[in-house]
Nucleic acid binder design. Structure first.
Length: 131
DNA sequence: GGCATGACATTGC
DNA sequence: AGCAATGCCATGC
């Protein structure tokens, strides 16, 4: 699978992410950040969706791992803020709901973008981003 | 290398 | 709606 970096201005070309299965985090993580930056405001994507976009359909867990690595504050990726809060579980629930710090933060960020969050859950039928 | 640990997904109760 | 069992695979020890 190939990724067209031209779709997103301001982001560097990452065409060398081809052999993801053989790549270490130096490639996998940037690929995750790159794909996450594609999710439009007001929409959400599942971990598996992001994984599929970068050509690793079975690496959903690793997407979460990569986003966790973004930690603490300026969650930046080549000058861009990676919208990690737009990535949730396939069933619409917020994976960080058990996290007293980031859980409420993620819900607040989503609501700030117009996403309806009820009981730490998003209606995927309405907000799931489909390319 | 083996083993445990996850911001997961799917299936089948 | 839950819940458990599996499969998955990057990381770290």
């Amino acid at each position: 699978m190939s990724i067209d970096p031209g779709e997103v201005s301001g982001l560097p070309a990452l065409l060398d992410i081809g052999p993801l299965r053989l790549a270490g985090e130096l490639r996998f993580n940037p690929a995750v950040y790159w794909a996450t930056c594609h999710i439009p405001v007001g929409r959400v994507a599942a971990y598996g969706d992001v994984a599929a976009i970068i050509g690793a359909p079975r690496a959903a867990r690793q997407v979460g791992y990569a986003l966790a690595a973004l930690s603490p504050d300026p969650k930046d990726f080549f000058g861009q803020t990676v919208p990690w809060w737009r990535v949730i579980r396939a069933d619409g629930s917020i994976a960080l709901q058990g996290d007293p710090g980031r859980g409420p933060l993620q819900a607040a960020l989503l609501r700030g973008e117009g996403v309806v969050v009820v009981d730490m859950r998003v209606d995927m039928g309405i907000h799931r981003w489909r390319r």
